[in-house]
Nucleic acid binder design. Structure first.
Lengths: 186, 186
DNA sequence: CGCCAGGTTGAAATTCTTCAAGACAAGTGG
DNA sequence: CCACTTGTCTTGAAGAATTTCAACCTGGCG
């Protein structure tokens, strides 16, 4: 309902990989209990407010309201497409594009729930978190962020990130937002 | 039904990221048409034999046979967990572990459908494919494979791969097979 | 005031990529 | 049967990307 969280997995050897960010409106673990899986954990990045749903009530609501069932199905598909997109991002793009792509995604998702205006949003994600998201070291993330600033693509200070030239930014990140299934931005 | 295929995505800039391998028994695109998505493509790695199902018949079968519906749901969950696992693999592990982890997964999945015995299986995947799977260059894949051989962990010649010391191999790859939801191996 | 988490920096070491070439086997057409 | 192409694997050497280590800086907060 409120706040940021992330879903991550810790590897033996101490490394941590963030698998998803959850922002207001996102759900987790609705269909099947995966939080019990070994090494799968959840972490709040800010104070959060969440709604817990009993599995039974989810079941009954989806039974009685097909439109909601359909909505949940779409949401699940978006989640899955997003993981795939992250895979492509981490597997196939160099640091600069990789981080830029993540920012493009976050911006759109936050805008969709009214948490971003004018390409600016609050991002309560440390550079360590970022590193564990995109599979880079925090030092390299730091330098890559500086490069993004140097190129005049973003402004980032404190928790406030603004994308300065969205078309150029999206283009260089090779970001195609269709996988998020959002309405054409208005 | 037969043969190997893979699901991949091509990025602008020519790079290709393989997102999943499909082996006999796997399904694709059952619930929602994702093959229409931009840059999502399918490729056969060997001659294949596939069964095409009309969306309507899938719907009716899942309606009439709850056990099949449940099976498909589990299969979908496994697919999703596998993408997540790949994300963690690519994001968090160095080349040697990364490739080893992939091999562990392939071996289990193939064994589950009777296409591997005694830790040996046919892997019709070129080193270029491998590179595009794990997010490394083909040259580095080649050298990493040599390193795996040198350490006496695998044998690989032609299309035949055998894992020589499975416990050690799994341990070094940090491979925990539970996400595949296979029966305990017998 | 002093601590602490998070950000920044420099320099060296490592991992990985690129380029460019050669080896080898299987398949094809003459 | 041979020459020839083609796809895959292999190798070396140079260079780029990224990590590691070890500092230092900064602002907020108790």
């Amino acid at each position: 309902m409120e706040g940021f969280a992330c879903h991550y997995r810790t590897l033996t050897g101490g490394r941590r990989q963030i698998i998803a960010y959850l922002v207001p409106g996102d759900s987790y673990d609705l269909d099947s209990p995966q939080h019990t899986r070994l090494g799968h954990e959840m972490m709040a990045l800010t104070p959060v407010c969440v709604a817990r749903l009993a599995r039974a009530s989810v079941a009954s609501v989806t039974r009685d309201f097909p439109a909601i069932a359909e909505g949940l199905r779409v949401a699940a598909q978006v989640d899955e497409a997003t993981v795939r997109e992250w895979l492509v991002n981490i597997g196939g793009r160099p640091a600069l594009e990789r981080i830029a792509h993540l920012f493009c995604e976050l911006e759109l998702r936050l805008r969709a729930v009214g948490l971003a205006d004018a390409d600016r949003f609050d991002m309560p994600i440390t550079q360590y978190d970022l590193a564990d998201t995109v599979g880079l070291s925090s030092v390299h993330v730091n330098r890559t962020l500086q490069e993004l600033r140097r190129q005049g693509l973003i402004t980032l200070s404190g928790r406030s990130l603004t994308i300065l030239n969205r078309p150029a930014f999206q283009a260089m990140a090779d970001f195609q937002p269709d996988y998020l299934r959002l309405r054409k931005t208005g």
